[in-house]
Amino acid sequence: MDVLTREATYDIQYGYVKRPTHINTSWDMAKYEVCGHKWVDVSQADKGVTIITDCKYGFHARDNVVQVSLLKSPKNPDGNCDIHKHFIYYAVLPHEGTFQEAEVNRRAYELNLLASNNVPLLATNLTGAALPASWVTSTNTAVVVEAVKVCAEITRNIVVRLYEANGGSADTTVNLGFTITQVRECNGLEDPGAVVPRTGNSFQTSFKPFQVRSFLVTF
């Protein structure tokens, strides 16, 4: 890459981490491979390049060279492990400014959900819960709708889980494409908490850097 940087940025669940691209210590030398989820980015002040993958989780960045680990192929206990045809999807995304300004997270989700995996949205048979084109959306691109699921214990409730992805404070409006009657914040066990004010089928919320918040939506 035509980029000068001392650190590379790696996507992880609900955020990202930075790791050095140089070798100054034995700790740096041990980071010959760094785990990441959907992407790795190398950027300087005015531009950068992101490598996006759909299912590769090992990366290597030294100076301005970026490598992706494609296969492990161990010889034990299975001597034939990974010896077959593989289809590997990736994208190279040059961008101006920071990876936050380039909406790299959004592009990574697009490749993972809409391109290589071709995952369709399936309609549900729950009364009053037909899926429109925009089911749950966030008006702030820094706030990602990470999961939407049926509540395990409370009927006619879904859980909407969001997180702040860019490492800053963020305000957003969450719009739901169906009629709702109540919104409550909940914890990871889906225990209902305080009622969240709403306007029609929307509600507003704020996030600290990398904060994860979940909401119970009654329909």
Rank of each mutant, 00 (worst) to 15 (best):
R62F: 07
L71M: 09
D28W: 11
C35L: 06
L71K: 11
Y57N: 07
D63Y: 06
K47F: 09
S69D: 10
D46H: 10
F59A: 04
D46P: 12
Y32N: 09
Q67Y: 00
D41W: 00
D46I: 05
L71D: 05
A30R: 07
R62Q: 05
Q67A: 06
S69E: 10
D41C: 11
A61R: 01
A45M: 10
K31A: 13
R62I: 05
S73H: 08
S73W: 03
T53N: 08
K56W: 12
V65P: 00
Y57S: 08
C35F: 08
K38N: 15
T53Q: 09
D54F: 10
V65R: 00
H37R: 10
R62D: 06
V66T: 09
V49H: 04
S69Y: 07
C55I: 07
F59I: 05
G58H: 10
K47Y: 04
D63I: 00
L71W: 07
E33H: 03
D63H: 02
V66Q: 03
K38D: 15
I51P: 09
S43A: 13
K56G: 08
T50Y: 08
S69Q: 10
T53L: 07
G58R: 08
K72W: 12
D63Q: 03
K56Y: 14
I52D: 12
A45E: 15
D46F: 08
T50R: 09
K31I: 14
A45Q: 10
E33R: 11
Q44R: 00
V40Q: 00
N64S: 03
G36D: 04
V49F: 09
V68W: 02
T50H: 04
W39S: 03
C35P: 10
H60W: 04
D46S: 13
I52Q: 02
I51L: 11
K56R: 14
K47N: 12
G36R: 05
Y32H: 11
V49N: 06
V66S: 01
A30S: 15
K56F: 09
L70N: 06
Q67M: 00
T50E: 04
W39A: 00
D63N: 06
H37E: 15
L70I: 11
G58I: 09
